[in-house]
Amino acid sequence: MKKEDEFYVGYLPTPPSTRKKLIRIVIALGIVLIVTGILLVGKQRGFSNGTFEFGKETSLKGVLTTNPIPMLLIDKGKNASGQHQMESIVLVGYGKHGAEDFLQQKEKEMGISLQNKTVNLKGSLIYHDGKAILELTNKVKASIGLVSTVNDIRMPDPITPPVAVKLHGEIIDPKCYFGVMKPGVGKPHRDCAIRCISGGIPPMFKVTNALGENNYFILKSKNTSSINKRVLPFVADQVVIDGSVNQYNDWMVLTVDRITLTSN
C-alpha cells in the first residue's frame, strides 16, 4: 500500500506508517498532559499544617462550659504569679454540627446540668496555630462521662475590659480551618463553611496582621440573636467587623456590632 493511500479502519489492522505516527502522537500527548499535571501540582499555594486526628480517639478531662461557646477548660497548672492557667478546647459535634445540641441531649438524658461540671470527653483532636478543637465522638454514650456533680469552676469574667475595635479579616468555620479541610478558607470552601456554621459550629474571625500572623476571635452576638445565622451571608468573604473584644482565658471574643463587606 502506498504511504499516501493508507487508510485507517478501526476494525482492520492499522497501516504501518499510520501506526508509527500514531505512537509518536500518543507519547507526545501523554507527556504534555502529565507535565501539565505536575505543573498544576507544583503551582498550588500550599496548605496549612493544621491536624485532624481522624480515627484517633483522645480522652480529655476538664470543666465544661458553654459560655461563650461550648468549650472544655483544662487546668494547665499555676503560672509564676500563682494563677491557674486554663487551656480552652473548643467543642464541636460530629460532621458539620455544633456541640450544643449534643450536650443538651446529654443533659436531658442525665438529668443534670453539665455547665461548669468536670467531665471526661472523648473525641478527635483538631489543632493548628496554638488552638485546639475536639470533635466529639459520634458514639453517643461513650463520648461524655461525668466526673463531678458539683460546679467545679466558673468561666471567669472577661480578663480584659471590652475594647472597641474595627477588624479586617475572614469569617471561618473553625473545625475545617484548623485542620479538617485543606484549604479551609476562601471561595472554594465557602459552601462547606456555610453548612458547618448553619449546623451550629461556632463561627470565628481570622485576622492577619502585617507580619502575616493570624489572630482568631470567637464571634458573639450583642444580643440573644444567633450569631451563626447573622454571619452566613459574609462567610469566606473579606469583611470588616466593628465590635468590642474581651479575652476569655486563651481566647479572644469579638462581640459584633456591624459586619461590612470589603470585596465584591
Partner: peptide, 29 residues
C-alpha cells in the same frame, strides 16, 4: 466532602448553601 454530614441533604446543600446567584464573582461555582 463539602456538603455531607450536615443539617440538610447534600444535593440541596450544593444548590442552596451559597446563594449569591446574582453576583458574578461570588457565584456558586
Amino acid at each position: 466532602q463539602f456538603h455531607a454530614l450536615g443539617n440538610i441533604s447534600p444535593l440541596v446543600s450544593v444548590l442552596s448553601s451559597n446563594t449569591h446567584y446574582t453576583s458574578f464573582i461570588k457565584f456558586p461555582f
